Computed example of a mutant assay.
Amino acid sequence: MSNKTIKIGQLDMELQSIFSAFEHHVHTAVDTAAEKTAEEAVKKLKKTSPKNKRAKRGKKYKNGWKYKKTSEGMTVYNEQYQLTHLLENGHDIIINGEVRGHAAAHEHIAPVEAWAQDEFPEEFKRQVGKG
């Protein structure tokens, strides 16, 4: 902050200018922190997601993790969204209407979600500290 002298009538304008600059800095820090956290979460999910060894395209789920900016912030998702719940929680194997077994759960989303919830505030602090 500079040590300049301002007239009392200009104080309001000067404070508005300072707060506006700070608000812009905070919004930028939030956006940057959210994007960096989402990007790292996608990398972690690609490493920890199960791969179907029998399927010809077994890497499709594993490599299907993406992120996008939405009105609520960043959303991390998989292009094969139908499989996320089944793989994370396990499911019955049903053949001709009969339960023939159970596919084990491969918990890979919950740990990354917990990491992201812890990481975002830390990344935000780092981004605010840069300015």
Rank of each mutant, 00 (worst) to 15 (best):
I95F: 09
L83P: 02
R126Y: 03
K44A: 00
K68A: 12
K69S: 13
A116P: 03
A38L: 07
I8K: 14
Q10N: 11
A55S: 12
D118I: 05
V42L: 05
K36M: 08
Q127K: 02
K60Y: 08
A110N: 11
T48P: 00
K66C: 08
R100E: 11
H102K: 14
I93V: 08
P111N: 07
M74K: 13
Q16Y: 12
K44N: 05
F22A: 14
V26S: 05
V99N: 11
G58R: 03
V128A: 02
A33Y: 05
V99P: 04
P111R: 06
G64K: 04
P50T: 04
V112H: 02
H102C: 01
K36S: 05
V30A: 10
V76Y: 03
K44M: 03
F19S: 09
A114S: 13
E122N: 12
V26N: 03
M1A: 12
I8E: 14
Q82I: 08
A34P: 01
E14L: 11
K53H: 09
Q127G: 00
T75D: 11
H91V: 01
G64W: 07
H106F: 09
E107A: 14
I8R: 15
A21N: 11
H27L: 12
M13N: 13
G131K: 13
I95M: 11
Q80H: 05
A103P: 06
E72F: 10
P121H: 00
L86E: 01
G97C: 07
D12K: 15
I18H: 12
M74A: 13
I95Y: 09
G90S: 04
H25A: 14
A33E: 06
E98Y: 09
D31C: 01
K66L: 12
H91P: 01
N52P: 04
H102F: 10
K36D: 07
R126M: 07
L11H: 04
S20K: 15
M74V: 14
A38V: 02
E72T: 12
V128M: 07
A34R: 06
L87N: 00
H85L: 10
D118N: 14
W115Q: 08
D92G: 08
Q10Y: 06
K62Q: 15
Y81K: 11
I94H: 07
A110C: 02
D31N: 07
E119D: 05
Q82G: 10
E23C: 01
A105P: 01
H102M: 01
E40W: 00
K68L: 10
K46Q: 15
S17L: 09
A29D: 04
R57A: 08
H91E: 03
T37N: 02
V42A: 05
K4S: 14
K59G: 13
Y61M: 07
E23P: 00
